[in-house]
């Protein structure tokens, strides 16, 4: 009981941290490189504790993201739902991939997310974004192993302390 509570504390605080990271300012030149932190955290939790993560959670988290960033309501929700669906479909395979293959899979997911975003923006009648728009999945791929190791380490520490 206590352990699950500690685990869910980690779960929610990691998501909150991702919202803050998403809002964090960066120097102008680095802005397009900012990874989609929320998606990365969602990927981690969907891989490691799928009983928490479902399409409903992805949808709600996306709506929260929309409210926080003040974009079109439903944009993040759509993106995270699609991401979560693909991820849960291939979860059984992805979990046992070595780290570099996992990172490549994350890259593919984030690239797909960019395409979805491009379609949404195009439907809203916005001009096509610059080339730097496509850089974020790359940094997401680079950030993935570190996020994975960090969260894994935190979880194992919790487990040790509880037992």
């Amino acid at each position: 009981m206590n352990r699950t509570r500690a685990n869910s504390a980690l779960f929610w605080s990691s998501l909150l941290a991702c919202y803050l990271l998403q809002l964090m300012p960066l120097p102008q030149a680095l802005l397009p490189l900012k990874p989609y932190w929320l998606a990365l955290a969602l990927v981690y939790w969907a891989l490691e504790s799928p009983e928490r993560v479902g399409l409903g959670l992805a949808f709600v988290l996306g709506l929260l993201g929309d409210v926080v960033t003040g974009e079109l309501l439903g944009e993040h929700a759509l993106r995270l739902c699609i991401l979560c669906f693909i991820l849960l479909r291939f979860r059984a395979r992805l979990r046992f991939f070595p780290m570099w293959q996992q990172a490549l899979a994350v890259f593919a997911l984030l690239l797909n997310d960019r395409i979805v975003l491009l379609m949404v923006r195009a439907c809203a009648g916005e001009p096509s974004p610059p080339v730097t728009f496509w850089l974020a999945p790359l940094t997401g791929m680079v950030a993935w192993p570190w996020l994975f190791l960090l969260l894994d380490d935190l979880r194992s520490r919790l487990r040790v302390r509880e037992s």
């Binding site: 399409l55 309501l73 759509l78 739902c81």
Partner: peptide, 15 residues
């Protein structure tokens, strides 16, 4: 999935 996507798209259009 289709249900959630439909809701999201509807929200976007309304918004």
């Amino acid at each position: 999935l289709i249900g959630y996507l439909a809701v999201a798209i509807a929200l976007m259009v309304i918004d």
